[in-house]
Design a binder for these strands. Structure first.
Lengths: 191, 191
DNA sequence: CGCCGAGTTGAACTGAATCAAGAAACGTGG
DNA sequence: CCACGTTTCTTGATTCAGTTCAACTCGGCG
């Protein structure tokens, strides 16, 4: 929790009251590999901040294939924003890939923080803006890069993640099959 | 401009002062087909709200191929958020696809509005959240749908846009070539 | 030891890209 | 209003990246 508070304080001033409130609506949790934090089809009211560890969110298509939307690593937020914002049931699943520590927030209360403590708005806004920017970049990369190029970029962005993830987690993030990723790796190792 | 003010008022209360300020930092502009509103490589300080018409933002890769990030239609915002948020030069180009009316904002001043009139924050937050949600959906669609499926969905989302766009605008949004799009259309017309 | 999930490799297949040529649509100037 | 050149769209033939399906390997673990 301190990690999060410090992160907030590094960009805005946070009153002791707001800090106390954030504490009051959050729970620090240890989760273990394989745990499902959000399950497709169920109602969603939780948002997780990752203190340490690795999680991912993915959807499952009609054929049962999984598609990774996001990896949640240190200092990232993860949830099903589609469901929360539209007040729908989850289309995503959030699973824990290695033993992790997260802070669990009730989504509505976290939003309420912004009403109670407007000073917190700029932090949230900056977070959302950065999120939009990273999604824009991801879409552009997906449109213009080949699979090996996307994999290289992925390794730059998540240098240590391969220790925590299965091959098909990464493949389904890049939009390819695990077999293809395996071959891309083979090619790279030749150089 | 009224369109935008009404839109804002429909979700939050806007003080006369804030309304006046928004007016003071914005310019209503008529732009014509082919106009470039933001040019790759140049500095960016403008954000556009589309009153009427159709624009698009795209990047150009090393081979000169264009990739459409976004279409800006009625009531949408369009700019190069990557450049603005990171304070970099534009990687995107924003061009006008049909004669349009837009409201031009200075990006920094628009952000300043939020400092001067915090009441405006929730509107901006909601906007960003919806943006994130739509980007999440687009990424998931790109990962799990075939090209014809993506095209169908596109037609649902932008029912009237084909009158204003070239074939390759849409193809480069879907992540395919114009030839492929042409063949997809052919298939559809058979059914 | 044998099982099981994960990763790799191979062969055949396929959707889409590429390259090239032709047809249609469009705008401009006479 | 037509003729012309330009751009866009279509169509065809070929190539290619990535998929699919199946077999095999590897490492951990009961």
């Amino acid at each position: 929790m301190e990690a999060l508070i410090n992160k907030i304080k590094s960009s805005i001033q946070l009153s002791p009251e707001a800090e106390a409130y954030l504490f009051s609506i959050s729970t620090k949790k240890k989760v273990t590999k394989g745990d499902i934090l959000i399950r497709e089809g169920q109602t969603v009211d939780k948002i997780f901040f990752v203190i340490e560890g690795c999680l991912r969110s993915y959807c499952t298509d009609k054929k049962g294939k999984e598609h990774t939307l996001q990896f949640g690593v240190k200092n990232w937020w993860i949830s099903d924003y589609i469901a929360i914002h539209n007040n729908e049931r989850a289309t995503l699943t959030v699973e824990c890939l290695k033993d992790s520590t997260v802070i669990e927030f009730n989504a509505k209360k976290l939003n309420g923080t912004l009403t109670l403590f407007p000073e917190y708005e700029p932090f949230q806004r900056n977070l959302l803006e950065r999120h939009v920017v990273s999604l824009h970049k991801r879409i552009l990369n997906q449109l213009q890069l080949t699979a090996p190029e996307r994999y290289d970029l992925f390794l730059q962005q998540y240098p240590d993640i391969e220790q925590d993830t299965r091959n098909y987690h990464i493949a389904s993030y890049l939009g390819i099959t695990q077999e293809s990723l395996s071959r891309i790796r083979l090619e790279k190792s030749k150089n």
